[in-house]
Design a protein around this nucleic acid. Structure first.
Lengths: 356, 356
DNA sequence: CGTTAGCACTCTCATAGTGAGAGTGCTAAC
DNA sequence: GTTAGCACTCTCACTATGAGAGTGCTAACG
């Protein structure tokens, strides 16, 4: 029996019919019958369509939940659909506006932007929105600042060149006067801006070794504070929004199933792993079904794209949901959001005077 | 017919039986039959218990979902139970430890503490954990700091005396040199520390009016930056954790119902309103059923307590869930968490050397 | 008078049966 | 290659039906 016959062997009629089945199923969430395909278009009868559909099933593009039910697209069908049958619907102007308005930089730091992006993804796609935040160690330093909080406790503020702000309270050996904190932060900012935190860390270690002997008090303190404040201990985080969207999907009417799935979304580490498989390549990537390791009775898909400033990728953003989703709308949406977020982050540090 | 007869008119036997019904129902989530009460204790037959239960129903403490089902406690019953029949189970040592370990201040700022608290509430109670963050306008200033981000964009960092940190990116008329930013933040910190942001705002306005004429460049800039950076625009926020806990409750097996409820938890403003009704009085407060305005087919309850540093209340923290909850465990838990969080916040600014 | 056994009544819930409807696969004719 | 016809299958909604649980009432008992 012929298996997973490739695209070339599909006649154009086969392709038309498969496309119709996919589109209908995406819309209705119910197995598609030959009759309904026949009614849609084509001068063909249901019986003919049935023959074609039986072939498509044999080739791995369709499957039946049970004998004598309609047919449902498989992961292979979605792949084919996305690769060569889909028309990329442009994001409607209204939504573009809405996204751009919400991702304005005005007064928001980068973390807030990520939160907004996640929410927008969820809201506009009716799926679960996910944004992976940059691993702090890879961000490029723009400025450091130390604010005395109380006694030996000092708040260390790290500003990355892409607008991310990281706060950390550190505790020093002894109290450091305010003026010295200023000198130290000046020194660090002037000498280390433009490097990633990881690089800075390495350089600090070298400095400590080399100048161990003749280190003056101030330099010692500088290194102490920098070591503590710039410790790149942060793993990349994830911002998830809209898990309650899952409850609205007809294929998820069973509470226990939904619960398992929502709990799966709480496993941030796994999400990062999945999403980061999309970072290579650049454009929007789609993982369907078993491709994405979120085990569940319902097939899940991921549509994701990297975002970043200029060449440097910072993280990944996208949506997750049942494989039955409106790819024609969602793929452009994810694409547009990736670009808009990247642009917004770029604006955050290159002062663009004619903004708004 | 006698209505809502008060506590005094209940015989001690009535009370024992009511208590048993409540405890059984909290455990089983199913209407309690006279038979099961009779089996539990008392030398009484089911028929006698039935008579008593019929009385309790007449007085408004019990109700039947339908004729010839067991009986279920009403809000009045829970009130009575909490007020005078419950024994306050102490928080087990294991949990105390767990909470204290997680609410250590080490390197965490106050916002992170609130997140942790919310998560702990949810995890340990299997309910939805909610924490109201202080309205920024009411926080007492500890220090201000300005960090140049790019061009005319400046990051303003506000540290409250209770350890909360607020970032805001502001944009100035013209570029301000780094040294001047330092002078300005020094000036503001020295002159305004100890006042709430609202008070500072008022004082700034007065200064502007009084010294309008002879304002020098530096003072003008100071006021400009302070106005923008200390703008107390933040409404109190809410941190919600564990909404997926709702999916595990047997009384919420209907997906649509759960969805409505989860969506209700997304309405932060309403949550703040409800929770803030608990801020008066001091101790743990319990709102049951209609008391809390979260409309739903399932009766909801709120167990909440204010937290804060010393005399000053900062916000509210607590859990929400179906009225059928284990008050004996949850009330002490909320109490303990409120105290522990308050203590952790206090430590965040008074440097206590023998911490840990 | 409080307590209890007995009993009829009610309501729910799980189960099985039934029939309509939808859909398929196959075959034979066009 | 296409189509009409038809038998077959599977689901789903609907309807008994009966067991089980629980109540309320009454009458008897100590």
């Amino acid at each position: 029996m012929p298996d997973a016959r490739d695209q070339a062997t599909l006649s154009s009629r086969d392709r038309e019919i498969l496309k119709d089945v996919i589109l209908t199923y995406i819309l209705s969430a119910e197995p598609v019958s030959s009759r309904s395909v026949a009614k849609h278009n084509f001068g063909l009868s249901a019986a003919t369509i049935r023959n074609v559909m039986a072939d498509l099933e044999e080739w791995g593009y369709l499957m039946q939940p049970h004998t004598s039910a309609g047919r449902v697209p498989t992961a292979a069908a979605y792949h084919l659909f996305i690769q060569s049958m889909m028309e990329n619907r442009a994001v409607p102007a209204r939504e573009r506006r809405y996204i751009q308005d919400n991702l304005r930089v005005g007064g928001a730091d980068a973390d807030q932007l990520l939160g907004t992006a996640s929410h927008l993804l969820s809201e506009l796609s009716s799926q679960v929105g996910v944004v992976v935040t940059p691993a702090i160690g890879e961000t490029v330093l723009k400025a450091v600042d130390f604010v005395p909080v109380s006694g030996r406790k000092i708040l260390c503020v790290v500003v990355s060149s892409t607008g991310f702000i990281d706060n950390k309270v550190i505790e020093t050996e002894e109290e450091v006067p305010r003026e010295e904190l200023v000198r130290i932060s000046n020194y660090l900012t002037e000498n280390f801006a433009g490097l990633t935190l990881r690089e800075i860390r390495e350089r600090l270690v070298r400095m400590m070794v080399e100048e161990k002997a003749q280190m003056d008090r101030m330099l010692a303190r500088t290194i102490e504070l920098a070591q503590a404040g710039l410790a790149a201990d942060g793993a990349p985080g994830v911002v998830v929004d809209g898990t309650s969207m899952l409850l609205a999907k007809p294929e998820l009417s069973d509470v226990q199933r939904v619960r398992r799935m929502i709990d799966a979304f709480a496993d941030k580490a796994r999400l990062v792993r999945i999403l980061n498989r999309c970072i290579q390549g650049g454009g929007v990537r789609v993982l369907i079904g078993q491709d994405c390791e979120l085990t569940s009775d319902v097939e899940l898909s991921v549509v994701a794209t990297p975002y970043g400033v200029g060449e440097r990728p910072l993280g990944t953003l996208g949506i997750m949901g049942p494989s039955r989703m409106d790819y024609e709308t969602i793929i452009p949406l994810v694409h547009f959001l990736g670009e808009t977020l990247s642009r917004a982050l770029a604006e955050a540090f290159s002062s663009d005077p004619d903004r708004r």
